[in-house]
């Protein structure tokens, strides 16, 4: 594993993603998702909204890191809030 040059932050990052996917799988088995219309312009399933949330979170982080003089933790906080909003009302 040493060739993968793991660090604690990236390990936490990937564990979180893996946990999310596992959680979504369990949720899907317990109560299957139904495609629905929220504030997004397209009908989405739960997995679609998770994907959109993760992708936009990546872009939020890139914008903050590249072009804004604020800490990356703001980006993380904003992404979490955005993800919750998206999952609930998206």
């Amino acid at each position: 594993m040493s060739w993968m040059v793991w660090t604690v932050p990236t390990a936490v990052f990937f564990s979180t993603i893996a946990a999310m996917l596992a959680g979504m799988t369990a949720w899907e088995i317990v109560s299957p998702t139904v495609e629905r219309n929220g504030f997004l312009p397209i009908a989405t399933t739960r997995g679609d909204r998770l994907f959109i949330g993760l992708l936009s979170a990546a872009y939020i982080h890139l914008i903050v890191v590249g072009f804004l003089p604020i800490s990356i933790w703001f980006a993380l906080g904003l992404s979490i809030v955005w993800m919750l909003v998206l999952m609930h009302w998206g």
Binding site: W3, M4, V5, W6, T7, P9, T10, F13, F14
Partner: peptide, 8 residues
């Protein structure tokens, strides 16, 4: 994953 590790 390795690329992500290298990037930081």
């Amino acid at each position: 994953m390795t690329v992500v590790n290298y990037s930081v």
